[in-house]
């Protein structure tokens, strides 16, 4: 029984769903690890929200092979990424760089949060101020209220 349960657990265990084909894997484990690391940050241009490491698209495959060829040829990780960016633009980076064109992207969440905080602070300050102001009705208003209540009673 225990054997069956163990076998079932093994069968149902999540398998990492990388799309890398055995034939693409480099013999050198260090280079291969670097290739995997680079691939995880490069966007597949066909299925745009996957990395080339995850994608089965043929263009993603060719990009994975290209990354490995460049690494084998002696490129640094940065050089490989720079080459791909020089062909496809910053869009291929799943983690967009912080620069002129992306300031809005990176700063907008913090900016909006700041506006919210300021709004909340202003709101509570005002309410406190209002609470200190003298409450209660003027004589004129009390008269009007009394009249209204009388009307109601009738």
């Amino acid at each position: 029984m225990r054997f069956v349960i163990i076998m079932l657990l093994v069968a149902l265990a999540p398998i990492p769903a990388a799309a890398v084909n055995p034939s693409e894997v480099l013999a050198d484990p260090v280079l291969e690890a670097r290739a995997r690391e680079i691939s995880k940050d490069l966007r597949c241009l066909v299925c745009q929200n996957q990395s080339i490491d995850d994608s089965d698209a043929s263009l993603a495959r060719d990009l994975r092979v290209l990354v490995r060829e460049r690494l084998t040829a002696g490129d640094s990780n940065e050089q490989v990424v720079a080459y791909v960016v020089s062909r496809y633009g910053d869009f291929v980076l799943l983690n967009p760089p912080f620069k002129g064109t992306t300031y809005v992207l990176w700063l907008a969440p913090a900016g909006i949060a700041l506006i919210g905080i300021v709004a909340v602070v202003v709101f509570f300050r005002r309410r406190q101020g209002a609470a200190v102001a003298p409450a209660g009705l003027s004589t004129e208003e009390q008269d009007r209220l009394a009249n209204l209540m009388e009307d109601e009673d009738r």
């Binding site: 043929s58 060719d62 990009l63 290209l66 496809y88 633009g89």
Partner: peptide, 13 residues
């Protein structure tokens, strides 16, 4: 066949 030129041209489709 292996997208060498296609990638160099930044082709996506």
């Amino acid at each position: 066949p292996e997208s060498k030129a296609a990638i160099a041209f930044g082709v996506t489709g």
